[in-house]
Design a binder for these strands. Structure first.
Lengths: 142, 142
DNA sequence: GCTGCAGTTGCAACGACTCGCATTTGCAAC
DNA sequence: GTTGCAAATGCGAGTCGTTGCAACTGCAGC
């Protein structure tokens, strides 16, 4: 399976041991294509790889996030959501009234990151943000 | 107690029932002066008001956050931190290397909020943010 | 002051996630 | 192919936080 080989390479390049558990977990995140919660991932892995323990899933996701291989984001559902770090970085605007989730271009946060670096010397991690608020449609309802 | 009266007024003005539990919980948050975790709050209340249940604390904090009376922020400790919404709005820069927490002026995020409104029509809640990254001192160590 | 009702509360159970530890295992060195 | 060791894993216990429900209560109306 190409994905599993690629994932193994990514892990090795990150200086990590390549275990079957990790390969399967991270492949599942890559295959999800969009955000996936830990509990959804655990459910899916329970079917396809029942030998993998839930604590292993949490640890693998946490270390992958530390390594910059996945984004971990609080989208307001009460559970962290995970996404493979791809080429297309983006953020989200989440309406707390209607629950709508919109993609947000990088430039808004990149601009701020640049300022933070130039003015405060701080190198911000702004990989994947969720910004809560009220969308255009819900403002006109009030 | 002035604080309790003020807190009762704030609750009433927010259209909420004024219960002894809520008054005590929110007074404790106001008195904390700085961020306080839910479990720290629960411990303090257990001493001063042992009849208040932990689930009531969580519910009161959640509804106060919804009403905009307190900020709830994930500062990376594994526990949400709460702070009474005061006049002086600020954000934080948190270094993931040394753990240092710096205050951040409003203007960085306010600028972005303005752009989001003007360009996307989105009214962002940017009350109290924690931005993770690497501080100036830890960058030069690498 | 009493009443009724919608909202709040305490309790116990539960969900999402973390931690300690004994055992297993990836992999570098031989 | 074997060995040793540091890291990974499964398991069970635990933490932080949520939820359902019966009982309680703030407060508007009388």
């Amino acid at each position: 399976m190409a994905c599993e080989n690629e994932t193994a390479v990514v892990l090795r390049e990150a200086g990590q041991k390549v275990t079957p558990q990790r390969v399967h977990i991270l492949c599942e995140v890559r295959h999800a294509g969009v955000h996936i919660t830990a509990s959804r991932l655990i459910d899916e892995l329970r079917v396809s790889h029942p030998f993998i323990d839930a604590s292993t899933v949490y640890r693998t996701l946490a270390s992958a996030a530390d390594l910059g291989l996945v984004y971990e984001t609080d989208m307001g559902s009460g559970e962290s959501e995970f996404e493979w770090v791809g080429k297309d970085r983006h953020h989200h605007l989440i309406c707390r009234s209607c629950g709508d989730v919109e993609s947000l271009d990088n430039s808004y946060l990149d601009g701020m990151a640049t300022l933070l670096y130039e003015e405060a010397g701080f190198q911000a991690d702004l990989g994947h943000f969720a910004i809560f608020g009220v969308c255009k449609g819900c403002q006109t309802k009030a």
